[in-house]
Design a protein around this nucleic acid. Sequence first.
DNA 1: GTCATCCTCGTTTTT
DNA 2: CGAGGATGAC
Length: 712
Amino acid sequence: MNLLHELNEQQKHAVTLTTGPVLVLAGAGSGKTRTITYKIAHLIAQQLARPEQILAVTFTNKAAEEMRTRVVGLLQALSASPLICTFHSLAVRVLRRHAHRVGYRPDFTICDTDDQKTILRNVYEELKLADKDLPIRRSHAVISRSKNKSWGPEQYLQRSGDYDAEIIFKIFLSYQKYLEQSNAVDFDDLLLLTVKLFEEHPAMRREYSSRYQYILIDEYQDTNPPQYEIVKSLADVQQNITAVGDEDQSIYSFRGADIRNILEFERDFPGAVVVKLEQNYRSTSPILEAATALVSHNVHRKGKTLWTENPGGEPNEIYVAPTPEAEADFVCRSIHHHLQEGERNIAVMYRTNFQSRQFEEALRRFRIPYQLVGGVSFYNRKEIKDILAYLRLVINAHDNVSLLRVINEPSRGIGRITQEKLHQLSRESGVSLWASVQIAVQNNLFPAKTHLALQKFVQIIQEGMELLDLPLYSVVEKIAQASGYLEMLKRENTEEADNRILNINELIAAAREWIGTGGSVQDFLDNAALRSEADEFDASAPVTLITLHNAKGLEFPVVFLAGCEEGLVPHSRSLEEDALEEERRLFYVGMTRAQKKLYFSFSRVRRFYGAEGPGASQPSRFLMEIPERLLMQVQVPSRTYGGSVVPDGSFARGSERRLHGFVSGAMIFHDRFGHGRILQVEPLGDDLKITVQFPGLGIKKMLQSYARLKLV
DNA sequence: GTCATCCTCGTTTTT
DNA sequence: CGAGGATGAC
């Protein structure tokens, strides 16, 4: 079977290098994932490796799934399958077998962000700290960032230089202790414990690195230090590692991703062969040229030259909207147009999640169906997490985090005070909360009402434990019943509660399907915990709303990059030099998702927290970095705007802010270049109607003329 | 201990 | 504007 004829020379080269380390530096749209996929297929087809000797690590579950299907597609008959997974799911797999070697029981629970914050709240209580002195979100962020750099509490204290490092150090310590006592791990621990396992148990390292003869890593530029350590360990014995990445698409440094991993691959893996993939198969040339021009403003890159055989193509358009509503309106109208032309996959991308709302509302108004990627995913909904917490407790009652989540959900009279006392009890006697509850019940430590409530709770969980022999879905069903959760929702009798009931039913259905996979209850829970929002992406949806981060690895014929404003992209919190380059890469990632047509849009006015920003927003500097010849302004020959101005044409005090951006822009336009024409200025009560005509000036000049104006 | 209401404060990006 | 915490009435 010859799979290689479908590849170009460089891709073929990368695929046929079957021993030793290989670094594939691949530009956007150059087929890097395809190269890995073919390499897996090639190794199997040529009998260079058995499928189970191959391990491929991707960035998201979705990508893993896709790669799996593609491999199966290339090799019709597969007796076994290669392991294709994410770092985190790999870690879970390893740790479920060997947790005891690093101090955990194999039934450890995985905490998500919410759970982490619950734990931190308890730590705060123990250390007598208040959220307003040091916001939990901050300690959470600091702890996670440290772990992403492979720092424990001590290293953090020594190396961070934070002014409040000492107190965070204490929080960090207690947090970690709490996790250990609950036999729980957070996302970061999954990686760290795996590293620890390989470090402290050379036998484990040997076992895994000889089990997998070939290691393939996708999106290598996004690996952080613990992931890097895992890669090193796994490639230890055979050194048959293929890493595929693009330094221009490194956008996860906030999660500890270290671009050095890719820049220093050749030093880390001596004898590495470097292959560059520079032909882009995705985008037409206006898109590719603009993207290339943009990213060439970055200093920290190896640099490569992308080229395409798709000449011509539509010009990139910019639309400047007076308000976010107008921006959404424009996007919807254009989407409508493209849909009518028969386009099937259109994406609207933005920097921050909150921007999705304006587009959702507009799309609904236009009755255009869409999918939102990100936001609150199914497994993140409260009702789902609650029911799953019950399920976790039934498997492992000592899981404090889950216990706290549902001990009073639905409320059964075990409030804050009781919970605090239980905590105290558990700290004093060094046992789990579940054990404390039982001690309390046995020794009658609480008033009659509370006592009964606790008894009832114990009973619910114990009954659940007895059900575990039943099929998973009926366990879930019975738990939803016995806990009183369904009843609570029914009694609420609102549309929202009904929706929640539907969601629970959907969970039961998912549990029913799970039986078919042959996985255990534990696997079911692991899967739920590691499922990310981006995994729910449906490639066939006509319109997709998505953040720039989530869009990585995807492609769409038509892309709208919305909110191209200073402060949004680049985000106001990333204006220092390094962070700025990352923002530029993020923008680059967005641009290079487009196959045929790329739009930029931004709004003169931006609302934060429901109120307007302090002045007109300025166009993103990234727009300015794109050569003018590659940009075209959407034709809006004349527009009518309304706003508050006093009759003589000057702006009323207090009202100028609202319309500051475009009104002032129109005026300076007139001033500075002498071409702009204010067609009409008519008072309308307290309002003023201004009609402006935009002639064909250079687009950047015009964007800037708006932005630079100061209103007097 | 619970529920309702008021208030505060904050939005980067994610496994 | 909205979520989630803090406060106060039962």
